[in-house]
Amino acid sequence: MHRFFNGLLSIVLTASLIFFSFQTLDAETLALNEYNCQSTDSYQNIINIILIDRTTALNDKSNLSLQNGIKSIIMSSDIHGRLQILEVGQNDFTADSVADYCLDEYTTNKQKKVESNAFNKTLAAILEKFGLYHKIEFDDSIDIERIDRINKYRDNIFRQLKVYLSHQKSNTSATSIISLISQCYHHYSLGKKTFNLFIFSDMLDSQISTLLKSNDIKTNGDSYKELAVSQAKLMKDSFGIVSDIKNVNIVVWGLGRSDINSNAKLTLEQYHSLNIFWKTFFTNFFNDPTIILGEYMPEIHSIFKSTPHGFGTSQNY
Results as ranks from 00 to 15, higher is better:
150 I>E: 02
292 I>F: 15
23 Q>C: 10
135 K>L: 14
298 P>Y: 09
95 A>S: 12
242 V>E: 15
226 E>L: 13
97 S>F: 08
188 Y>M: 01
120 N>Y: 08
235 M>K: 09
96 D>A: 05
208 I>L: 15
16 S>G: 13
303 I>C: 05
259 D>N: 15
128 E>V: 04
314 S>Y: 13
92 D>P: 13
225 K>M: 12
173 S>D: 15
36 N>V: 13
117 N>H: 10
97 S>L: 13
80 H>M: 07
217 I>D: 02
44 Q>M: 08
270 Q>P: 04
11 I>H: 14
194 T>R: 02
259 D>S: 12
155 D>K: 09
109 N>A: 12
301 H>D: 14
289 P>C: 11
260 I>V: 15
176 S>F: 04
144 I>F: 01
246 K>S: 14
196 N>G: 09
64 L>P: 00
250 I>D: 04
70 I>S: 02
1 M>L: 12
50 I>V: 14
315 Q>D: 08
233 K>L: 07
194 T>S: 11
165 L>A: 01
164 Y>G: 02
28 E>F: 09
95 A>Y: 01
255 L>I: 12
78 D>I: 04
157 I>M: 06
97 S>M: 12
294 G>C: 09
138 F>K: 01
31 A>M: 11
16 S>T: 15
190 L>G: 00
284 N>K: 12
31 A>H: 09
146 R>F: 05
153 Y>N: 06
38 Q>P: 02
310 G>Q: 06
133 Y>G: 01
117 N>Y: 06
46 I>V: 11
32 L>C: 08
248 V>D: 05
296 Y>A: 08
123 L>P: 01
121 K>M: 09
211 L>Y: 06
85 I>G: 02
281 F>I: 07
155 D>I: 07
126 I>K: 07
54 R>E: 11
190 L>K: 15
261 N>E: 00
85 I>T: 07
80 H>C: 13
